[in-house]
Design a binder for these strands. Structure first.
Lengths: 244, 244
DNA sequence: AGACGATTAATTGTTTGACATTTAACTACC
DNA sequence: GGTAGTTAAATGTCAAACAATTAATCGTCT
């Protein structure tokens, strides 16, 4: 671990300063020239370090007279985006078993049902109803159906009214959904899924967390069955196996 | 969004190629000189782009004759580390309400109980017992007690035997734990926590998911009470409020 | 013929120096 | 006093070179 290049070491030092609180949000870092002198390296090397930090959304840079690199407030939205791409790559690169991914996704989603039942607002129910209506439209393309599926489940999670939960679940739902849809694209029975979604929404409307859990579990089982069917039809190729 | 610098655009193009699968794991990217020519930019600019990707663990570079930049397999462990630092920053920079963070953490942990009860092995129970023994030692420092607390809960999550769940929960547990400990450090009653941990472990041993849920909920309530007490003692300062 | 050592080529790591671009503040003029 | 031009500071980009590392190649010696 000690053999990382200069830009990585410098980026690490600055990152530690941010994480430890020595550099607070909106604090301005020294200019590139000053950093270069402080660390005893050239400006391109400092720039590589700053780009590393920028890639992690830890700093932003502004040009001009009062420009420079500033510690950035990491927003929930950005963190979610990071989470989604990371989780997506993690699944696609590690040949994660479909059942494993599916199991995790629904287990996490069920973690929201109690809070969702207690706190859902008419707005959340409306969001879900809107997606239900879209999903019932036979003219909807497969891609759009998938997108609506994601939107439906995210509305469910958001109805728990806990931004930390929403952030965490974003990775679980968005990252696994494409994998799921790639696999069961052709075989899926929209009517069946729509039924279950309807049951979930109805249970949420009457604040019945147990019924939501049940419907989600049924949906999980159905999804896994579908995947198994598709997999069997494709031969013995094991799920998303790829690489190495 | 269109006004990003060259290195960001180039990094984005390469990242898309990786995410879309055009560049698979272990594939070698063109050399820096070739990339510079392809994109019509200078080598330093290409290098900045590559450092951005390296910061996200998307590529690794090797020097020497057969060197170059290679698409890297994102491991669960690295992804977890990323998750933990991101989640930690997210909470500290956004003044997340303690109750909100705590609620999310325990909700997610309860999502693991059913699977954990079904699949826990003697190895998991032993890990948890080891931590229980440490937590019972009055000579243990506060920092070590916190670390043991994290280890205990991670063992619980791992007993669900689902790597995707473990990955997701790592962020929730590790990121929130420091925040929690900073706040309730002085006030915490170790005997009470040890009791609850013991109840959780015992319930897991007899595969009683409902009892685990109950004990976790009790622990959640106790934690929130503690935080409220500490907060009240400190005056009306609202939780981890900081920044902006 | 085979093993071993030196050479070579390819590639990333780092430096220096320069120029372009952007932005805010300052200054001078009207 | 306001406005336009100037200036200074900072990041963005480029060019050319050298250092360091690594594997393959070539040559020599046994």
């Amino acid at each position: 671990m000690t053999e990382q290049d200069l830009s990585a070491r410098i980026a690490g030092e600055i990152r530690d300063a941010i994480v430890s609180g020595a550099l607070i949000v909106d604090a301005r870092l020294p200019s590139e020239a000053e950093l270069a002198e402080q660390f005893g390296v050239s400006r391109p090397t400092v720039r590589e370090a700053l780009k590393r930090l920028a890639a992690q959304n830890l700093i932003r840079t502004r040009r001009g007279a009062t420009g420079g690199a500033f510690v950035r407030r990491l927003s929930f939205e950005e963190a979610q985006d990071q989470q989604v791409t990371t989780a997506t790559l993690l699944l696609s690169m590690n040949a994660v078993d479909f059942d494993t991914a599916c199991e995790a996704r629904f287990a996490l989603e069920r973690a929201c049902t109690a809070l969702a039942a207690a706190r859902r607002t008419p707005g959340h129910l409306a969001r879900m109803d809107r997606e239900l209506a879209r999903q019932g439209d036979p003219a909807l393309s497969d891609e759009a159906f998938c997108a609506s599926d994601v939107a439906f489940h995210r509305a469910l999670v958001d109805s728990a009214a806990n931004p930390v939960l929403s952030y965490q679940l974003a990775g679980a739902i968005e990252a696994i959904e494409p994998l799921m849809n790639m696999i069961i694209f052709t075989a899926r029975d929209r009517a069946r899924i729509l039924d279950l979604h309807g049951a979930i929404a109805a249970a949420l409307a009457r604040r019945d967390a147990a019924a939501m859990d049940g419907a989600l579990s049924t949906l999980e089982r159905y999804t896994c069955e579908l995947a198994a069917t598709v997999m069997a039809r494709r031969g013995a190729a094991p799920s998303a196996a790829r690489g190495r």
